[in-house]
Nucleic acid binder design. Structure first.
Length: 821
RNA sequence: GCCCCGAUAGCCCAAUGGCAGAGGCAGACGACUUAAAAUCGUCACAGUGUGGGUUCGAGUCCCACUCGGGGCACCA
């Protein structure tokens, strides 16, 4: 009895069965399969899953299911990045409890993932807002604290006036809050930091281990972000004062060309020097500083900005030649990069020459690059050249002069080779409610006191009665029962730290928590880490290229140093899937181009949507939903399904007697398919499955017929391959073919390589690279035979008439190229 | 300004330096059908953004440029 392919029916049929079978349980004690750890970036539970999730999880699932069918015990867990501002903001807006709101969304997403047939191990699940999870955030915080890697300091921090909280450097995009696009301002606050800068060198150098395994784009973004520069710190004495100005420069070779100094207007040293000068200059400085403070990052970053500044009335002495040079302040020097002061070499730096031109300061060329003297042209030169006007450096090139200059200042004791980073320490305090409480108690007598381990977790108090609306201080400050505690050291009255941690702390180590998601003893067991970690394949969006991935790499290195893991990089391979767009732009309600996932699933079925995601193009490319056709995917799945339905042979495993041509197609498919999936060309893998389907259709209708055992072999491998993209259809095909569920555990057949070898092949003959003739040859043909054959071709002879052969290239059995003069 | 990625048929995309086409969409035609849908089959369509170079041979490698996308940027 022939039936129709019914999407809804097979979804309803198989989903409950899989729940019973638990094919993706990775914790079976007697499991001897080799292991793989495949991880999708966990979602933020704001509403139901959307098209972007659908793509990410479809692709992650292809990889996880593939390794499962290759015979691996695959750990493919899922969790929720459940703390954070959106929950809180939604809760404020609707007067709800953020906790209830979050758990409701998690339940909804979980149901959608189950329907979407993600191959998750549902026994390895976590939610970062559970005390059983965040207690380990607190534990890790204290580990970092005890090693001096978590510390508190006062500084001018990034402040989002709309979110009413501080932001990490990484959360400020082009001067705007990455979350709400408000203009970020500066505020002087005492906040907690993680000392990421201690790891800057390792974070940068270890990127080379990931070369070829992570997208090069992400590697370069991380390198840019860490931003290491090599150079020297050089001290300039200040005339008539004990103070020194220390500068960082990447161009110590231009030391003789320094004609003035510039201090960051908002640096402490500027303040000090301004106090030790005439009243008039001091007043000028103060009013300039006011101006500078008013400017926000947007204005400051404007490229055509005029240089401004104030002369401080002081002179510094160039350590290499005792030249007397004036000291200025300006806002183009940043207080928090390098030493907050520079030696200005206008001849060889764009910014410095702009400043020199504005204030009529001297320009003195010390590198002859062959271009016009900057003092004349007004254009700074920064290339390599011959050092001039520089005493003992004269005649050297740039690189040699840099080394020599460092030697000279080191010998004089006025400088040192140094490197500098763009990367800053990670500010982790947040003045918000829905996050992990910082496990520190502030005591007037004892100062900062860590919460003793046996008092962890410091649970978040209920939100009831608290005003969650942003007001610049943490809502927890009003939870007086929770806030006021006895000091663990002296027993006196003390207060808890009322800030919560940046949620990126949660996601910096969650991939390790999946090893023991329910342990109350340890964050994770070392033996489990040895068995599973690091993550073999990580899948997620490129939006996390800097923030999350950098922090996770930092945590991993810290955990390595603590001795908790034996590796230094958390994610061996990384796949960044693209975005799902609609008509060329990101989907959004306000743009009116939102495609609802649930609707798509209702119309086309889960399998068709998943297949469409995989088939749309290379996974890292964006998918424009208007370019793809889920209906076509559904059509193909029905076509494949009918192949399984048409097979009439009984299940057996000896296919040797099957039709050679069909078997060849099957094994060529297998070989190409595996290669495509392993190199993450999922679209090519799908195309190959379509090709096999077309071949089998033809074999059934016009060839060997549905009873040939080779057709069964092809149909079975097709079913297994489709399991990666279309689990429901595939499972149903597997049953039609007389097998028991679940196809997800059925392993791919080994490629029989003798079936891949062709007896005959087409050889082509080119003359000067142009195709002139082709003929069928035996693949074992020798070069000489093929050359003879080519030269005896009538077509070739005709083309060669009147031409002189200069060279004949033979690549048996495929090609002969005859070059003429 | 610096760095990275991309450009192949009407569209989405394939192609270890060796016949430009694997697959799909849209299209044309045919079979089945009273008809349509579904299904099955057949066909057409580009010389690879531009200009150079290397090579017996370049979509593929190199150089310059155009366009599109992304990252960093008063970072010393």
């Amino acid at each position: 009895m022939q039936e129709d392919y019914n999407v809804t029916a097979i979804q309803d049929k198989w989903l409950p069965l899989w729940d019973d079978l638990k094919p993706f349980d990775s914790s079976r004690k007697d499991d001897t399969r080799p292991t793989k750890y495949v991880l999708d970036m966990f979602p933020y539970p704001s509403g139901d899953l959307h098209m972007g999730h659908a793509e990410a999880y479809a692709l992650g699932d292809v990889i996880a299911r593939y390794w499962g069918q290759k015979g691996y015990n695959v750990m493919h867990p899922i969790g929720w990045d459940a703390f954070g501002l959106p929950a809180e903001n939604a809760a404020i807006k609707r007067g709800l409890d953020p906790r209830a709101w979050t758990y409701e969304n998690i339940a909804q997403q979980k149901a959608s993932m189950r329907r979407y047939a993600c191959s998750f191990d549902w026994d390895r699940v976590l939610q970062t807002c559970d005390p059983s999870y965040y207690q380990w955030n607190q534990w890790l915080f204290l580990e970092l604290y005890s090693r001096g890697l978590a510390y508190r300091k006062n500084s001018n921090v990034n402040w989002c006036p709309s979110c009413q909280t501080v932001l990490a450097n990484e959360q400020v995009v082009q001067g705007l809050c990455e979350r709400c696009d408000s203009v970020v301002t500066k505020k002087s606050l005492t906040q907690w930091y993680f000392k990421v800068t201690d790891y800057a060198d390792r974070l940068l150098d270890d990127l080379s281990q990931l070369e070829g395994k992570w997208p090069s784009k992400v590697l370069s973004m991380q390198r840019n972000w860490i931003g290491r520069s090599q150079g020297a710190n050089i001290d300039f004495a200040i005339e008539g004062m004990d103070q020194k100005i220390s500068v960082f420069t990447t161009r110590p070779d231009t030391l003789y060309g320094a004609t003035f100094m510039v201090l960051a207007a908002d640096s402490e040293l500027a303040q000090e020097l301004a106090s030790a000068t005439s009243k008039e200059i001091h007043e000028q400085f103060e009013s300039y500083l006011e101006e500078v403070k008013k400017a926000n990052d947007i204005e400051r970053l404007a490229t055509d900005r005029k240089k401004t500044g104030v002369f401080l009335g002081h002179y510094a002495l160039n350590p290499i030649n005792d030249e007397r040079i004036p000291v200025w302040v300006s806002d183009y020097v940043l207080a928090d990069y390098g030493t907050g002061a520079i030696m200005a070499v206008p001849a060889h730096d764009d910014r410095d020459i702009e400043f020199a031109k504005t204030f009529d300061l001297p320009v003195f060329m010390v590198v002859d690059t062959g271009e016009e003297d900057p003092a004349v042209s007004g254009i700074a030169t920064s290339g390599d050249g011959v050092i001039v006007n520089s005493g003992e450096l004269n005649g050297l090139n740039k690189a040699d002069a840099i080394s020599k200059a460092i030697e000279l200042v080191e010998a004089k004791g006025t400088g040192k080779g140094a490197k500098n980073f763009r990367l800053r320490d990670w500010l982790i305090s947040r003045q918000r409610y829905w996050g992990t409480p910082i496990p520190i108690i502030h005591c007037d007598k004892c100062g900062e006191v860590p919460v003793p381990a046996d008092q962890l977790p410091v649970e978040l108090p209920a939100s009831e009665g608290l005003d969650l609306a942003p007001k610049g201080t943490s809502p927890l400050g009003a939870a007086s029962d929770w806030l006021n505690v006895d000091c663990p050291t002296c027993g006196g009255r003390a207060k808890r730290d009322s800030d919560t941690m940046d949620t990126f702390v949660d996601s910096s180590w969650y991939f390790l928590r999946f090893l023991n998601p329910n342990s109350d003893e340890v964050p994770f067991e070392k033996e489990q880490a040895e068995k599973w970690a690091p993550v073999d394949q990580y899948v997620g969006g490129v939006t996390h290229a800097i923030l999350h991935l950098l922090y996770a790499r930092f945590f991993t290195k810290v955990l390595h140093d603590i001795g908790m893991v034996d590796f230094e990089e958390p994610f061996t391979r990384l796949l960044n899937q693209g975005m799902v767009l609609m008509n060329g732009s990101a989907m959004s309600k306000s743009r009116g181009n939102l495609v609802r996932l649930s609707e798509q699933l209702d119309i086309h079925g889960v399998d068709a949507i998943r297949l469409t995601m995989a088939f749309a193009g290379p996974p890292e490319d964006d998918i424009d939903w208007s370019d793809v056709s889920p209906a076509a995917s559904a059509k193909f799945l029905a076509r494949a399904w009918r192949i399984a339905q048409d097979v009439t042979s009984k299940p057996e495993s000896n296919f040797a007697s099957g039709d050679k041509g069909v078997r060849k197609a099957t094994h060529q498919f297998l070989s190409g398919f595996k290669e495509a999936i392993e190199s993450h060309k999922f679209n090519v893998g799908v195309a190959k499955a379509m090709e096999l389907t077309n071949h089998l259709r033809k074999a059934i209708d016009q060839g060997v017929g549905p009873a040939d055992i080779a057709v069964r072999e092809g149909a079975e491998e097709l079913a297994k391959a489709l399991s990666l993209f279309a689990p429901y259809t595939s499972e149903d095909m597997w049953q039609l073919l007389g097998h028991k569920p679940t196809v997800a555990l059925a392993q791919f057949a080994e490629v029989e390589s003798e079936l891949l070898v062709e007896q005959k092949g087409i050889a082509i003959v080119q003359i000067d690279g142009k195709l002139r003739d082709k003929f069928e040859v035996d693949v074992s043909i020798s070069e000489d035979e093929l050359r003879e054959l080519a030269l005896s071709s009538e077509l070739v002879k005709k083309t060669l008439q009147g031409k002189e052969i200069s060279n004949i290239i033979v690549r048996a059995p495929k090609l002969v190229n005859i070059a003429t003069k």
